[in-house]
Every structure is written in structure tokens, then in C-alpha cells.
């Protein structure tokens, strides 16, 4: 790691802050109260169940903390969170089960 020069840091941070705001504001800001077409709504219903799994699948399969290799303990944690979340419908229970299974698996595998 090399130190980040101040000018580089501030220009990058301001650009990322502004760009991120524009992404978030895009549809909320431009479209306002106009209704969305039906096909768009049909696709948008599946935003959460598509984007979050796409984001998370590589993080689970090849976690950076395990050097980008498949890690059985982290797979067990993710599987526990998935099962508990899907069957109980409770988010927090799924987090606790997932981290609990991960710690248990790490302890078992030493």
C-alpha cells in the first residue's frame, strides 16, 4: 500500500460522492410522479431478488479474506443464513445463524 496524495483523495471522493448521488437520484429525481409502464414494473419487482444475489454470490464463492479460494466455513455460514432466512422469514435470525455457523465451522476445522 502506498500513501494516497491529498489532492487525489479529495478529487476522487468528491467525484464518487457526486456520481453516487446522481445514480441514486436518477429515477426518483427525473421521473417524479409519472407512472411507470407495466413491463417496467414487472421487471422491477425482481430487482431485489436479482441484484443482491448477483452481488453476494461471488463474495460467498471466493471470499477475499480466504485469498479468493472456496472456504467451507464461509459456505456453511451462507447456507445457514439462507435456510434460516427462507424458512423463518426473519432477517436477524438469519444473520445470527449465518455468523454462528461460520464461527462453529471455523472452530471445528481449527
Amino acid at each position: 500500500m502506498t500513501p494516497i496524495p491529498d489532492s487525489v483523495f479529495w478529487s476522487a471522493t468528491l467525484a464518487l460522492g457526486l456520481g453516487t448521488f446522481l445514480i441514486r437520484f436518477s429515477f426518483l429525481g427525473l421521473i417524479g410522479g409519472r407512472p411507470m409502464p407495466g413491463w417496467a414494473m414487472r421487471l422491477l419487482r425482481y430487482v431485489p431478488t436479482a441484484v443482491l444475489p448477483a452481488l453476494v454470490a461471488p463474495l460467498i464463492a471466493w471470499p477475499a479474506a480466504a485469498g479468493g479460494q472456496i472456504d467451507p466455513a464461509r459456505l456453511a455460514g451462507a447456507a445457514a443464513a439462507l435456510m434460516v432466512g427462507a424458512f423463518s422469514g426473519r432477517m436477524l435470525g438469519a444473520v445470527v445463524a449465518g455468523m454462528g455457523a461460520l464461527y462453529a465451522a471455523q472452530a471445528l476445522m481449527g
Binding site: L59, A78, L102, Y103, Q106
Partner: peptide
């Protein structure tokens, strides 16, 4: 293993 708190959270959000 706090690195994994983030993926676990995302899984926990989606699973239900």
C-alpha cells in the same frame, strides 16, 4: 471473520 458480515447480511435480506 467480519469480512463475511456483509455477504451474510445480503443473504439474510434476500432469503425471506
Amino acid at each position: 471473520a467480519l469480512d463475511f458480515a456483509v455477504p451474510i447480511t445480503f443473504v439474510a435480506i434476500v432469503a425471506p
